[in-house]
């Protein structure tokens, strides 16, 4: 279990992490979601005692990180794939980490086998691809057989087979009752792996909810209806007290409507329908909506709003 309490990090004037309070629970995969620059990596570094919080507190199983005896046995982390000396072999990289925490040498062979790097154990890490480096980093996280695992953007640089592998690894680690905390800036990735979501934007907590609740609350569900007798259908729906939004292509959208109900209404009034389909907006859209105000680096693709004519001289 990881507990954050009012965790804050300031760099001069800039607030990178702003009063973050949440709990990461065991037995599930918790996704840590936020746009680039939201403060995810800074938060993770503070969890590992690498960066000092400006205010607030992080506790790992109730203790401060630097009070943990042999911390790799409590929490294993993959921060970035480059956290190793390129001139050292994969085996020696893991061996020096194992020795520092009193982990037996045999465990190094085990984790190399788990991540599929046994064949290149004696090779220097600088010859590794990004994906292999990522696997070596994950081997380091698994080394102490910890109850808590933390991965910062683990699928970066992995090929499809590697992505599939890491998703299954995270799920099986959680199924063993471990705490799995994984960051990503991709909602679609989280939707596939996470059971719980912590969403941040500009260092602030935006949501702390189960994946199912997040989907229910944030994704817009509606029914799409198309009819050659559009005007009559509108009248019927209005008559039944149903709010309708016109879609661009001549179709109608009914928010939170039941397809059965609309179909029955249409049949009652002998209206022809060409389409009647329940729809769900994508999670990616929901995530973008949630973080829209807090995205730090907007790509300015929209033109600035046009000024109404004469707006410049209504006030002097």
């Amino acid at each position: 279990m990881i507990e954050l309490e009012g965790l804050t990090k300031r760099y001069g004037e800039k607030v990178a992490v702003d009063g973050l309070t949440c709990t990461v629970r065991p037995g599930i995969v918790t996704g840590f979601l936020g746009p680039n620059g939201a403060g995810k990596s800074t938060t993770m570094r503070m969890m590992l005692g690498l960066d000092r919080p400006s205010a607030g507190d992080v506790r790992i199983d109730g203790q401060h990180y630097d009070r943990l005896r042999d911390p790799l046995k409590y929490i294993g982390a993959l921060l970035d794939a480059k956290g190793m000396h390129g001139g050292r072999s994969a085996f020696n990289h893991l061996l020096c980490l194992a020795q520092s925490n009193g982990i037996p040498r045999s465990r190094v062979h085990e984790v190399l086998d788990t991540v599929g790097l046994t064949g290149v154990a004696k090779k220097k890490a600088k010859g590794f691809s990004l994906g292999m480096g990522q696997r070596l980093g994950i081997a380091g996280a698994l080394l102490g057989d910890p109850r808590i695992l933390m991965f910062d953007e683990p699928v970066n640089g992995l090929d499809p087979e590697g992505i599939h592998w890491i998703r299954n690894l995270m799920k099986s680690l959680a199924a063993q009752g471990r705490t799995v905390f994984v960051s990503s800036h991709l909602m679609s990735e989280m939707a596939l792996t996470a059971d719980h979501l912590v969403v941040i934007g500009q260092g602030r907590l935006l949501a702390d909810t189960s994946m199912a609740d997040f989907i229910a609350q944030n994704s817009r569900t509606y029914v799409r209806v198309r009819s050659p007798q559009r005007e009559r259908l509108l009248d019927v729906l209005h008559g039944a007290g149903i709010t309708v939004v016109a879609a661009g292509d001549g179709a109608l959208e009914v928010d939170d409507g039941k397809a059965e109900h609309i179909g029955e209404l249409a049949a009652e009034h002998h209206l022809v329908l060409h389409e009647l389909s329940p729809q769900q907006a994508s999670l990616e859209e929901a995530f973008m909506q949630l973080t829209a105000e807090s995205v730090e680096y907007h790509a300015h693709t929209d033109a600035p709003p046009e000024q109404p004519w004469g707006a410049g001289w209504t006030r002097s």
Partner: peptide, 17 residues
């Protein structure tokens, strides 16, 4: 070497003292 390779974070996560 610890700093130029990024190993320092891995090292200090393993030995926070």
């Amino acid at each position: 070497n610890e700093y130029s390779t990024g190993m320092i974070r891995t090292s200090l996560a393993a030995v926070p003292q």
